[in-house]
Simulated scan of single mutants.
Amino acid sequence: MRKVAQGDQQAFSALYDALAPMVFGLVVRVLRDRAQSEEVTQEVMIDLWRQAARYEPTAGSVTTWAATIAHRRAVDRVRSAQAAADREHAQAAREHTTAYDEVAEQVETRLESEQVRRCLRGLTELQRQAVTLAYYRGLTYREVAQTLHTPLPTIKTRMRDGLIRLRDCMGVTT
């Protein structure tokens, strides 16, 4: 390991040949996927090359040190894959809920619109025209009176009576 820490490529080649099969075996037991295990094994071997100067012979053998790094890397890969799967599942659940909410909202809006149209048919002609101009076209009471050529007090009364009838027809409680 001292020679590997000094950048000796032949020493690393010998270390690679000695440890790579053990590292791969440990990683494949954790990941259960050969392709991912090969990737993680390569990452571990690169870590051994880069971190060779950190190796402490008093803390344990090179094999133990390599096995520890390999196990940690493999577990990290499993956790990363699980986190990604959890995020995808959560996103799918949010999208599904959103789609359901949009459909439910559209249905509710359509039903309310149909009920409003039905209730509007129950108003007198002047009430219906006044309500439609005020609430669907955004006209003021004064503009509604001018448009319908009707005195403002009459429009106010018809609007009030029409809105009360709409409220009752729609089943709105005050």
Rank of each mutant, 00 (worst) to 15 (best):
R34I: 06
P151G: 01
Q10A: 07
R73D: 02
V103I: 14
S113K: 12
E108V: 02
Y141L: 15
R32D: 09
Y55T: 01
T109A: 13
L133R: 11
R2T: 13
H71R: 15
E143R: 14
A90H: 10
A99L: 12
Q91H: 06
Q36G: 13
Q82H: 09
R87F: 07
Y136H: 14
A104K: 13
V44T: 08
T124A: 07
L133A: 12
Q146M: 10
Q82Y: 12
Q146C: 03
D86F: 13
Q106F: 02
S37V: 01
M22I: 09
T41K: 03
E112Q: 15
R142P: 00
A52Y: 02
E125V: 06
L126V: 13
A59I: 08
R32P: 00
L120E: 11
I164R: 12
T63N: 08
D47K: 04
T58F: 05
A53C: 01
M45G: 01
R29P: 00
L133G: 08
H96I: 01
T41M: 09
Y100R: 14
Y100T: 11
L166S: 08
P151M: 03
G122K: 07
E43W: 01
V27I: 15
D86L: 05
H71W: 14
A66L: 06
F24S: 02
T154S: 12
D168M: 07
A104E: 15
Q6A: 15
R32C: 05
V27Y: 04
Q10I: 09
A74V: 12
D47L: 11
L120H: 01
Q42I: 00
R72E: 03
Y136N: 10
D8M: 07
W49M: 12
V28L: 00
L120I: 08
L166M: 14
A85S: 14
G171I: 04
R110W: 09
Q106W: 08
T41D: 06
A99D: 11
R165Q: 05
Y16C: 02
H149F: 04
G171D: 07
L163E: 14
S37M: 00
E38V: 00
Q36C: 00
R117A: 13
G138Y: 06
V28N: 14
G162S: 06
Q127K: 06
Y141G: 07
Q42R: 12
T109H: 13
A67E: 10
M45F: 04
A93N: 00
R79P: 01
M170C: 05
A74H: 09
T140W: 05
V144M: 12
Y141V: 15
L15A: 11
E56S: 13
W49A: 06
V27P: 08
P57V: 03
C119T: 02
I164F: 00
Q146Y: 06
R117L: 10
L152A: 08
A92V: 01
I155C: 05
Y135E: 04
T140C: 03
R165S: 11
Y141R: 09
L31V: 08
P57T: 03
Y141W: 04
V172D: 05
H89Q: 14
L48H: 02
L31K: 11
R137E: 15
R79G: 01
A67C: 05
D47H: 10
L26A: 07
R2V: 05
R2F: 09
I46V: 12
A104S: 10
